[in-house]
Design a protein around this nucleic acid. Sequence first.
DNA 1: AATCCGTGGAA
DNA 2: TTTCCAAGGAT
Length: 290
Amino acid sequence: MVAADTLLSWFDDTARDLPWRRPECTAWGVLVSEIMLQQTPVSRVEPIWHEWMARWPVPSALAAASQGEVVRAWGKLGYPRRALRLHEAASAIALKHDDVVPDDVDTLLALPGIGAYTARAVAAFAYGKRCPVVDTNVRRVVARAVHGAGDAGPPSTTRDMADVEALLPATDAAAARYSAALMELGALICTARTPRCADCPVFDTCAWQLAGRPAYNGPVKAVQKFAGTDRQVRGRLLDVLRGAPGPVARPLLDAAWSDAGQRDRCLDSLLVDGLIEQTDAGLFALPGEH
DNA sequence: AATCCGTGGAA
DNA sequence: TTTCCAAGGAT
């Protein structure tokens, strides 16, 4: 069990002062933060988020930038396709929504790069709406505190959202704050590796504690390899273009990875994704930068 | 439903 | 050193 008053009091006392949580932060700021935070730690997002907010304070400003500028400004946050999708989303918001980030889940879901989590995170954190916001932190907290399991099993959007829905306070404002608090609990206390149960505000009612801290017995999630994968090669290739002021010739890219077959395949996939372009002269460049 | 898509810090 | 994993989404 995760009582609302207990969790909210703890959040009042210990919540991190993150820039996208401040009252003056716009819905656009919240949306940008949520995209950047997908699979990416807060510490790496913060500086880039500040740069983006200063440079592109509204969706139409980002929409006016070239794709290459956006990919370059994304830097090394990882998963750079997120940058292109955010750019697309900004264009759609500017054109179809009067430059105002939508406040309802279904409209948000229709935007590129916005899925079940991000749509509800924006609705809750930018607009104070009551809706289940389920990320990996929340799934882990619910698995332990509510179901008494050692960890979350495989995700099931429908079931996971129903679990959280049942926990949410009745009013919009309390529910939105509760959603942020659940995530904070998972991020700071109920962590994946070594949970800090001694500091947990819901220790006394945690189903996992009451059950004697049983070990997780569900299916083991396979950890993704990185070394030697196309992901690494794509990262290397894109990093060459990011580090260059303009279009580069083939030999410079060839130096980034020795396996020619894999290198060519990755180069092609980057072209398909629109993360890079080929100039008329046969050089390679970030999109729009030639 | 399982797999792919970057990056880097911490244990 | 290797492994784990960090506010997911698209296909």
